[in-house]
Design a protein around this nucleic acid. Sequence first.
DNA 1: CTAGGTGCAAAAGGTTTGCGGTTAA
DNA 2: TTAACCGCAAACCTTTTGCACCTAG
Lengths: 143, 143
Amino acid sequence: MRTSWEQKLDQTLTKVGLRSTSQRQIVYSVLLDVRDHPTAETVFLRAKQAVPEISMATVYNCLDALVKCGLVTQVNIHRAATRFCPNMQEHGHFYCDECGKVFDISMASPAGMINIPSGFEPLQYEVSISGRCADCRDWEIPG
Amino acid sequence: MRTSWEQKLDQTLTKVGLRSTSQRQIVYSVLLDVRDHPTAETVFLRAKQAVPEISMATVYNCLDALVKCGLVTQVNIHRAATRFCPNMQEHGHFYCDECGKVFDISMASPAGMINIPSGFEPLQYEVSISGRCADCRDWEIPG
DNA sequence: CTAGGTGCAAAAGGTTTGCGGTTAA
DNA sequence: TTAACCGCAAACCTTTTGCACCTAG
């Protein structure tokens, strides 16, 4: 029996004119399975466990398709590999400079507090915070 | 006579233990001169007009030094070259997907509206908006 | 004097592309 | 049937690194 996320994936891909393929299903399931904002490389390695012959190019293609159809968000990290996140609620990201982990941060819509100049058409907002996560702060060696 | 920004640069670099060099002065002056959020490559080409023998590695080093001492901000753009901005007021950035230009966007401090989990230590906020700028919207072919 | 900076060239890292073969619709 | 997709490998672009020489403090 098809699970509900598989149906939703099929429908969402089809809606924007993209095909539903087994590779795209695997990639999406990998993202849903462990919500740790993996890089394309990590997604590749995890997907490979299910489909050993899958290629990096295909993983990029699949991630791209998922972003295009609105099921996945990209998280940009300065000069490091892009992370991928299947949480489509409006939220920000906290990047820990020390351990490299990425955390979802709940927030109000930023649209209200930002003064978009007239004539500009905003399509996407991205709020990212960098610093040190709780764990890394705890492990700090005192003075 | 030394201009005030040159003195400020010297002092600010020195304060964090970095040296004031002619290359760093040139790079900073390039950023102050045209406020169009240039890439490292563009900074390199502009700096080269004053110092033909300057190298890309040095431009990166100088930009890095300027960021470290707090005179310059980096603007991350998804999968494209980092842009550099000498405007140190708290502000966001609008990236036009069509023409690639970057615009400063005034905004209230995002710190208030974001719910940082306890124990997390935020160091830097970055708000970026992507979409279409006014010019690109105007030039759109109707129908 | 010497730690830090510069210039060059080579390498790294992440992502994209070209192409022949495959497959969903 | 056929446009879209896959897998592979090579290319690409931005950034980093190693090293010999140079220079600010």
